[in-house]
Each structure stands twice: as structure tokens, then as C-alpha cells.
Design a protein around this nucleic acid. Sequence first.
DNA 1: TATATTTGTTCAATCGTTTGAACAAATATA
DNA 2: TATATTTGTTCAAACGATTGAACAAATATA
Lengths: 342, 342
Amino acid sequence: MENKKKSTIKDIAAVLGLTPSAVSKALNDHPRISEKTKIAVKEAAVQLDYQPNYLSSALRKGKSNLVGVIIPRVNSHFFSSVMENIEKVLNLNGYSIIMTQSNELFAKECQEIDTLLKIQVDGIIASMANETIDLEYYKKIKSKGTELVLFDRGEEELHVDYVGIDDYKSSHLVVDHLVSQNCKKIAHIAGFKHIRIYKERIRGYIDALEKWDLKMDDNWIIESNLRVEDGRRIMQQLLDSPERPDAVYVAGDIAALGALQVLLENNIKVPEEMALIGFSDEPFTSLTQPSISTVNQHSDQIGKLAAEAFLDRMKNPKKKTVNRIILEPELIIRQSSAKNLK
Amino acid sequence: MENKKKSTIKDIAAVLGLTPSAVSKALNDHPRISEKTKIAVKEAAVQLDYQPNYLSSALRKGKSNLVGVIIPRVNSHFFSSVMENIEKVLNLNGYSIIMTQSNELFAKECQEIDTLLKIQVDGIIASMANETIDLEYYKKIKSKGTELVLFDRGEEELHVDYVGIDDYKSSHLVVDHLVSQNCKKIAHIAGFKHIRIYKERIRGYIDALEKWDLKMDDNWIIESNLRVEDGRRIMQQLLDSPERPDAVYVAGDIAALGALQVLLENNIKVPEEMALIGFSDEPFTSLTQPSISTVNQHSDQIGKLAAEAFLDRMKNPKKKTVNRIILEPELIIRQSSAKNLK
DNA sequence: TATATTTGTTCAATCGTTTGAACAAATATA
DNA sequence: TATATTTGTTCAAACGATTGAACAAATATA
């Protein structure tokens, strides 16, 4: 059953009485090869179940047609959806993707970058791990001549193409909506400020509060890793504080879930006593009881645009300008924040 | 800043006045190369920031040191955890992994297999898509001489190494526990019977009911895709049925979540009026209110063992016997089924 | 001292494909 | 008819690393 003899262009050449180079050119639609020969070669290729040897052609051409994608966690709808859309676009353009996850760990991220560079991918599309502060490894990618595109979590310092949403504006959307629901004391469970997107969300939150002349309290901005347990801990802390807020804006849905659990466990009415808004539109936000309001980051668009940015770089390798594509965030209003909705 | 000139063994050879072949042998610790030369070569390699060209060595050696992993969905804790553990073991053994997802679609799965074969991975570790009935593509993997290891979802017909849990026994654990909680009318929201693992769960469920002399009802075994909406729909159907069960065993946690939502929406007390048990120990099962009892499939072990099975094949290519590693399932009892727990 | 063995290195072919240059034949231009 | 151009193919050298064979020098054995 095992038919291990994989055929090569040599075999095709032998069958047709041609040279391997003629076969190669025929397969690649070289203009100087006659139509007749091309047809014969392609027919023979099918006959012999010929599969081009990717390794040799990549070696010769200096191009692997492989793209590495690094995401912090695969277990998040946002990231896996971006991944899926990157894949869709790149597959159509003859690229295969290698997907890796950093698990939010700097060390793992470095290791993944090394592996991808070793495999000689043509480019890397990445969203940085929470832990990452040192950008040396990302600079290494560029210095090796490998294309780099960042999305969502990306620092401007790297001067590479970037696709993301307007985080600053997102916070305005959230605060504006909460104000419309008569919330006056809005807290923010934030991500770490050293990451640009979280810094922007915090900045937007502060400016929006100011815009509406709302009380601001340093104890109402708490940075964290935004895991379930972080959401739980911080919400408990807010409940125990002398002046309890009447709304909480969480910079991530997972942490928002933890926060919601604590609210329910304490029999606090959501949204009447405490409104809650998350971030990312993870699918479970529509499934909880009450459902959680959140911000849609357009993961499908982000994936598509990131892939296209990469393709554009490959087509114009000498292009020097850097693209920053910023999408409009969309607030999705659900039960956890809409007092007239039930 | 861009230092595009990647150094090769030729460069090292030139620096040291050696031939490329001596350098290659030194780097690979060939016994006939002197210790002195090896040290000099390795030092020069570091100096020149030499990175071996994976493509050329793979081409020459006929071995890519790449392993493809195909999982149905990346967005599931079980699969992503298996993936992570496969990666951990294989990385330690000098392999890089390429992770792909079929999205439960047969067509996507075929495409992924073709890509992996094109890239010439040394092996594929996979769990089959729900849709997959035709096994031709998996046979193609073997016929190309590429190693294949299956986990969780795998059919015996393929005669390849397999790692999974004892699904038949899992159902016994579930039913036994429900019986201990005084449940008498146990329904089963099942997966599709054409997939071996779901067939086994159904078989175990039926045999366990028989063992305890419990009422059996064909309307109480409903096959589905086990998505949230399937769980919702079927639970609603069970609630509306003339004879309402007092416990439901769901073959997947996601569907169990949907079922739980419907129960809560209908103000049915869980577990008092209706006990609920899921499958896979997805993290959210411990976060719902009430938390959901479920079956732990030992994703970490499965990943590790699948990777080791692959490594074993690579070490003993002529081995003909096929390994089936079956792990013991573990029932995790939570609020949704334990009447004395609160 | 002559011969056998070990040691350290070079030589040359190879993996499968690509690609510019070379070349012969066919066709077009003068 | 002689020359230029086009067409279809072959030639040969890459891409970078690996590997068995060959070879010279150093060392061991008789």
C-alpha cells in the first residue's frame, strides 16, 4: 500500500523526453515554453501524482511562502478569529501559515520567534504578549530581513505596519453610554499601562470622565492581568471600598466575567446597582446571565487587513512608509449595562 | 540597521581556512573532526551569528523536523491544552510544530493535510473533525510515508497509533454518580454516532442504564453537533417532552452550557429538579452558577503521550505494531449534579 | 624500517528546483 | 539570399548543507 516513491520533475522529464529545466519552466508557465509542451507536462504531472518539493524550491528561490503568526492565547475568540482571517487571506495568495502562541509569556514568545526565523518564514504577523517589554526580539525579526506586521498589541517604537482599533475612542464610547444610563461613579479595571492599548484605554477613560465632569478617583483605576481571578479580586475590592462605584468598565471580557460572578454572588443587581462593560466581544458575553455589554474589535477585519498589509510588503519590498490602520470600535450594548433592557 | 547578510558554513570555512564540509561535520560533532577544530568552528559560528539554513539541511537529509498538528477547534481548552503539551515534548526533541485547525470541517481538514504534506512535515498528529467520515485523506498521509498519530477522535480503521480515554467507561462513571444522587430518568445529549468516541459514550450510557435497571427511552438519546445552540434546543425539547427526565448527561461541555442556560431561564432547580453533567472539563464549567460536573479527559497526558508515540515511530521506523493508549477518565463532581453540595 | 592503523581533512556528488545564458531551428525582415 | 528576430529547448550553475569516499599525515604495530 505504501507508495513511497514521490515523483520529481526529473521523472516527468524522462517520460516526455525533455530536460528537468524545461519541465520546471512549463510548470511555472514560462513564456518561452510552447503551449503544447506545457499541456503535456501538466498532464504527465497529474499522471505521476507529482507534488513539487517545497523545500528545494524554497531553498532555490530564497522564499518559503510560509508566514508565522504569533498570538498571546489561542483560547480567546478574538485572537483565534483574527488568526482564522489571516489564514483565509494568505491561503488564497499561496501562503501557508504557522500559528504559534506565546501564552502571554515573554520567554515563550522569544522561543517562537526563533523557531519561525529558523524555518525561514517570509514574514511574521504578531500580537505581543502581556509580559513583553523588551522589544529586542522583534527588532531581530526586522534585522533578519523578515517582514513584520503587528495587530492589537503593538508598540509604535518598532516602526512596522500595525492594525488595531481606536482604543482611546473605545473608552469614550463606553463612558458616554454609561453616562446615558445615569451612572456617575465609573471605575475601570484596566490592563497594564506599559502596554500601549491599555494605556490608551485608560487615557480615554480619564478624558471621558473629565468631559462629563465626573468624579475621578485613583483607586478606581486598577491595573491587572485581566484574568478571571483578577476580575474577581478587583471587583471584591471595589465592593469593599468606602465609596462604591455604580459602574465598572473592564478592559477585557474574561476579567469582566470574573467581576460579574462576584456581583451575582453578592446579590448586587446588574445593571441597576452596578453596570458592567467588558471588552472584546468574546462569545460568552452574550451567553451569561445577564449578558455582558462589550466592545467589538472587528477581529475579522483586523485579520484580513493584517494579512493584506503583509502581502503588500511582499509586493513592494522597498517601500519605506509604515502603515497604521486604525478601525472604529463598536459598542455592543447588552443587559449588564442597559437599564431599560431586560 | 538591516544586517541582511546571513552567514553560511562557507563563511565560517573562509574565516578559518577550512572547507565547508569540515565545518558542517564540526557543527554536527562528527567523530573524525578534532576537538580543536570543533571548538574553533563553534566559536566562529557564534561570532558570525550563524544560523543553519533549515531548508537546505531538510532537503539534503530528507527530514524537516516539523510536525503538523490538526485539531478541530483551537478555541477549546481540551484541544489547546493537548496542543500545548505536544509542543512542549516535541520542542525538547528538536521538532517544531505547525498547528492547524479544521474548524470541524471536512474540506478544511483536507486542505490542511495537503498543506502539511506539501511542507513535508515528518509527521502529523491529529484529532478528526466532526464532519469527517471519508478517511481517504488520512490514508494519503500514511501512503506518503508520513507518520500519523491520532488522539481523542480517531477511527480504528486507520490502524495508526492512538491516544484517548475510555469513553465507554466515562459514561458508566457519569451514570453511576447520577444514580447515587437518586436520579432515575437520565437523558443523553450525544454527539454523532458515526464518530467512534460518541458511539462509545452512547454505548456506555445504554449499558450503564441497563446495569441499574433504569428506564430507557429512545427519545432520551439525541445526537447533535454539541454546540451551545444544540444544547439549548435539545434541552428545551426535553423540558417540553411528556415525560421529563431528572438528569441529563451531555457529551460536551459547550452543549452542557447551553442546556444549563435553558434550565435557568425556565427556573428549574439544578441539580434538585434536573441534574446536569458535561464532558471535557472546559475551564468555564467551574465558573458557571451552578458549576457544571464534567469528565476530565487528561488533556496534558494525551498531548504528552501522542508526542511520545510520534517520537517512538521516528526512532523505530520499521515497527509494525500499532499502539492504542487508553487513559482512565475522571469524573469531576460539581454543583450541577451533587445534591449535597452547595 | 616497513607496514598497518588511526586521525583529520578535503573532494565531489547529492537533495529537487530554478534561472540566466547559450544554442539551434524556425520565422521575419531587408 | 543574407541577416535579424523570435521561439523552444538545453546547459550549467546555483541555493546551503550533508556525507561517503579519498587522501595525506600522524601514530601504532610488527
